[in-house]
Design a protein around this nucleic acid. Structure first.
Length: 427
RNA sequence: GCGGAUGUAGCUCAGUUGGUUAGAGCACUGGAUUGUGAUUCCAGUGGUCGCGGGUUCGAGUCCCGUCAUCCGCCCCA
């Protein structure tokens, strides 16, 4: 088959059973997030281009080369969102959430970055994340990291690592970058081309340069965490103590900087060895200046974002498989014309009791219908033919075990309800 | 934006130095078994060989272009 259309480069279709895994992940995330008081927040998928350029930073890769930017019919420059935090801050201010007492939010939705696709990277991808506003204390940093960690645990993921660092505040970071420049004065010719521009525009980023020669040169530079001002050092110590209290293991990663400009103090990532070159499952940090920068009153904030595709990739490799899509579903095999009306009623009654069923009124014999039910890995087959109808019964077959018994039509729904969650084979 | 690999049936893949009518397994449809599936046996459906151009008597095979996928670099989720 040679389809006339194909999906745009770097996009995915979620088809069963992957589509089901995506939804289940969303439900699980919503459940975990609600334990921490995070409430759902939905923002547009496109925003004014300025919103991103001014928060993420003009010099970042995202803004300088990865955004889907287009003019609308009135010539306004819009951009498909490359991440979620900027929109959350914008909505927080624009809708007056500051004054409502609601300060904790979660989101789950598509993001867009124009990049070369590879393992764990597509142009449209889903992110889920949380943002916690108006709490400057180190407990909220720890709660956010813990929340991310618990979500991974709930997914059954293994082999993950929490990496932690502090990038300080405007004051100590300024002092540190000045010291960096001082130390590297005269050595500009020895570093890679990219680091030369970094030294000019965003000196912190030289720290996570991957060029071996550069790393050698940077090895005895002072660590950012050792240069924090008193307040930032105290905050960082607080975050670490709280993580230990909560039982979330982490490793210090002095070179962890992260690619967005708005981070202050805490920066963290969760990585997995089960992924390819793109090993970050997600990351985040504190952004105490962003709300004020957007015109709000000074409001500290901390959050994280995780890549849904990457969570699912790790889940596929390390977690137990999900139940088959139709594991709890009954397959009604209706045989012959006469039973059609009764079978339709039965389907209605099953669904009224919040159970699932598929109704097969089509032609074909029992063998064919059982085969269909079996192929979809349904939990039960409900066999209704003339004999059953005349005797007021229906044959209920457990497709996993092969056991079959006659159940009175009136008692069918109760019978199924009692066996809801009956273990069925998985895909 | 840069580098490498790959596109043949719904899926996973064979296909010789270019040679006549392109194959297998799985899946699907039908039958053995008019009402008992996930195991067997038999038969069948399914392909403009990613797309476009070129070389040639002849192209799935060689050349050019293009689209897409995978892997890596950069960077990130």
């Amino acid at each position: 088959m040679n389809p006339k259309f194909q999906a745009p480069r770097g996009t995915l279709d979620y088809t069963p059973p992957g589509s089901l895994a995506l939804r289940r992940l969303q439900e699980l995330a919503a459940e975990v997030f609600s334990r921490y008081g995070f409430l759902p927040l939905e923002t547009p998928i496109f925003e004014s281009t300025d919103l991103f350029t001014r928060s993420i930073g003009e010099e970042t890769d995202i803004v300088s080369k990865e955004m889907y930017t287009f003019p609308d019919k009135k010539g306004r420059s819009l951009t498909l969102r490359p991440e979620g935090t900027a929109s959350a801050v914008r909505a927080y201010l624009e809708r007056g959430l500051e004054d409502t007492g609601f300060s904790r939010f979660w989101y789950f939705g598509p993001m867009f970055r124009y990049e070369r696709p590879q393992a764990g990277r597509t142009r449209q991808f889903f992110q889920l994340g949380v943002e916690a506003f108006a709490d400057a204390g180190p407990a909220s940093d720890a709660e956010v990291i813990e929340c991310f960690w618990r979500l991974c645990e709930a997914l059954g993921l293994e082999g993950l690592q929490v990496k932690l660092n502090s990038v300080g505040c405007a004051a100590c970071r300024g002092a540190y970058t000045a010291a960096l420049k001082e130390r590297l004065r005269g050595r500009e010719g020895d570093v890679c081309e990219q680091c030369r521009t970094r030294l000019e525009k965003n000196p912190l980023r030289i720290l996570d340069c991957k060029v071996a020669a550069d790393q050698e040169l940077y090895r005895d530079l002072p660590k950012l965490v050792d240069s924090l001002c008193e307040a930032c050092a105290a905050h960082f110590a607080g975050v670490r103590g709280n993580l230990e209290l909560l039982g979330v293991a982490y490793v210090l990663e002095p070179r962890l900087v992260r690619g967005l400009d708005y981070y202050t103090r805490t920066a963290f990532e969760i990585t997995s060895g089960a992924l390819g070159a793109q090993d970050a499952v997600g990351g985040g940090g504190r952004y105490d200046l962003l709300v004020e920068q957007f015109g709000g009153r000074p409001t500290p904030a901390v959050g994280f974002a995780a890549g849904v595709e990457r969570l699912l990739m790790v889940a596929e490799k390390t977690a137990a498989s999900l139940p088959a899509p139709y594991a709890g579903t009954a397959y009604i095999a209706a045989l012959g014309e006469r039973v059609g009306r009764r079978a339709l009623e039965l389907a209605r009654d099953i669904r009224t009791e919040k159970l699932s069923c598929l109704l097969d009124l089509g032609p074909g014999g029992l063998g064919k219908k059982l085969k269909a039910a079996s192929r979809l890995a349904c939990g039960w087959a409900l066999i209704l033919g003339d004999a059953e109808l005349d005797s007021g019964n229906i044959a209920v077959k457990d497709l996993a075990s092969g056991e079959q018994k006659l159940v009175p039509l009136e008692g069918l729904v109760t019978y199924l309800k009692e066996r809801r969650g009956h273990p069925c084979r998985t895909s």
